[in-house]
Amino acid sequence: MALAPYASTGQRVWYYSFRVICGLILFFLIAPIITIIPLSFNAQDFFTFTPEMLRLDPEGYSLKHYREFFGTEGSPGLGLIVGLVIGTAGAAALYFWRGAINVMPIIAGAALGLIIGKMWGVEGTEWMTPLKNSLKIAPVATLISVSLGTLAAIGLSQSHVPFRRAIMAILISPMIVPLIISAAGMYFFYSRIGLQGTYWGVVLSHAALGVPFVIITVTATLVGFDKSLTRASANLGANPVTTFFRVQMPLILPGVISGGLFAFITSFDEVVVVLFVGSVGQQTLPWQMFTGLREQISPTILAAATVLISISVVLLVTLELLRRRSERLRGMSPS
């Protein structure tokens, strides 16, 4: 929609003002998120830019809110070293077994070691304990929704499923029903069966909330799946299990992983259900932020927010890479 050379003055004015309007809307979308990043480096306990910050005076900036957020507990250094050693050993084992040099185990080992090391023994701290609880709940909930969800999505994508529409409606409903209603229902029901206020209660509720995302992404990947590949595999003598793991799984893996990321972020970001189903022992990071926002707001919340923004950027990039890989695997050109 480039501007035509013969455009009238009116058209030119509209063309440029439309661009300006769109620019302003995009500014509205992004600015609130971008603004709080510099604010989190404020040396004062204020929620606005101080004169020092506006003059770009280094005095006006500090990392104190981050020091407050991360605290000094835990031993990230030790964890990093242990993780690196285990990761390197894994990479070496892989090299001797398969003969391929792969750095992924080293990176994964280091990252996991760092996180576990940092989370070791942070009980009773204001921000790290909630973060630890979040990290204990989200992966388990994700695992449950991804494993059950992938199987169900494969079942749903077959051509003759009785009551497909009704089943789909039930499986998607956790995404549609307002969270406050889910939270209320789970609070009542889980109190009856003794799951209210327990770790497993929170995990199960989060797993249920993550299911629709897994179903949607995996069924979307399966729509483009070429059925003749499984038939060819069966024809060549593979049993269904082998076919699943060697042919189907590698092809739908990008969809499974992005569904998993959605489920993870749903649990990691969820606050309404955990407020009702959880007890103090399961206080998660969003819960802590919510309490902070509602009662006495401290600037450390901005540091926490910035950390969460960084996590979302990483997840967004991962997802985009996965999408491109999935399209390449399916023989489409990445757009």
Binding site: P32, I33, D269, V271, P286, A305, S312, V313
Partner: peptide, 11 residues
């Protein structure tokens, strides 16, 4: 993709 709590606290 950004946490709901982050966007709410920003506002």
């Amino acid at each position: 993709w950004t946490s709901l709590l982050v966007r709410t606290s920003a506002w």
